[in-house]
């Protein structure tokens, strides 16, 4: 119930800002401030400007990077700097959908291993394909919509490649390895499929220097499945995919592909960048 409009003057503002204005007057002033913009403006000069600017800079940071995906948070928790996390997160094979998909496929294959005759054969046929598919999707024009722009950047292409491949392999190997532990039969099975997996993955990278990664992966997948799916036929050995001849071929492919990549290592990243 005021008869005259009441506003802060400089002195009052100064005393309020400095905390020397008794409790009741402070309460009075504060009630007034909630409704009066001009009196609020009177107070701003009483706060240290650099301090306000610093807080604003922090607000802006948090506002512009609001949600870090589960992946990025997980990566930074394991000590990866956020620049690297940004690069890795851009690969589609690390998106949630991909990881869920792979896990699902493996889970189904695992169930088949218990339920179907020669079901183990299905698992051994599919598991090695997962890391390979992940790698094929981790780089190249198919996977990176920004690949043209990326090609013109100075970041070491080999490092980018290695980074993405390493993370992809880790995330596809982990569920497969875990699932492998539950395979019926000898514990050797949980490990032996790694050899075909490596052969397929390194083979894909090697072939990708000549053709687009997804074509390389498709070709190798077809070749592998032609052999390994025969294990599903009745009266065939379900462990066909891990039989000695097959493992031998895988070793040869792995060695050859690795040798090839090592020999072309200097141009490797540029070659991989340009398959389109």
């Amino acid at each position: 119930m005021t008869t005259t409009p009441w506003h802060l003057d400089e002195t009052l503002a100064g005393r309020y800002a400095g905390g020397t204005l008794g409790a009741v007057l402070t309460a009075s002033v504060e009630q007034h401030l909630t409704a009066c913009a001009s009196c609020r403006a009177l107070l701003t000069p009483h706060v240290d400007a650099p301090r306000l600017d610093a807080v604003w800079a922090d607000v802006l940071e948090r506002v512009e990077r609001p949600r870090r995906s589960l992946l990025e948070r997980g990566l930074s928790r394991s000590g990866v700097d956020d620049a690297t996390a940004r690069l890795v997160a851009a690969a589609p094979s690390l998106r949630g959908a991909w990881v869920t998909g792979t896990t699902l496929v493996l889970a189904l294959a695992l169930v088949a291993a218990y339920v179907a005759t020669n079901g183990v054969g299905l698992y051994l046929a599919l598991a090695p394909l997962m890391p390979m598919a992940g790698v094929a999707l981790a780089y190249g024009p198919m996977s990176d919509p920004a690949h043209e722009m990326v090609a013109a950047t100075p970041y070491s292409p080999l490092r980018l490649l290695a980074l993405r491949t390493a993370f992809v392999v880790a995330t596809t190997l982990a569920p497969a390895a875990l699932a492998g532990l539950f395979l019926p039969g000898s514990p050797y099975l949980a490990v032996v499929w790694l050899l075909p997996a490596l052969a397929l993955t390194v083979g894909t990278v090697a072939l990708s220097t000549r053709v687009a990664p997804h074509l390389a992966a498709a070709a190798l997948a077809v070749a592998w499945l032609t052999v390994s799916l025969r294990a599903l036929a009745p009266r065939r050995d379900p462990l066909l995919a891990t039989s000695s001849p097959v493992l031998l071929v895988c070793t040869v492919v792995l060695v050859a592909a690795t040798a090839f990549l090592y020999a072309r290592r200097r141009d490797l990243a540029e070659l991989l960048r340009r398959t389109a």
Binding site: E148, T153, P154, L160
Partner: peptide, 21 residues
Amino acid sequence: AGFHRGFTAFEAVDYVAVLKE
């Protein structure tokens, strides 16, 4: 010029900025 559609404008440019060292 393509960008990852799930990125925000800021993140898309930040991605290239990382690659520009």
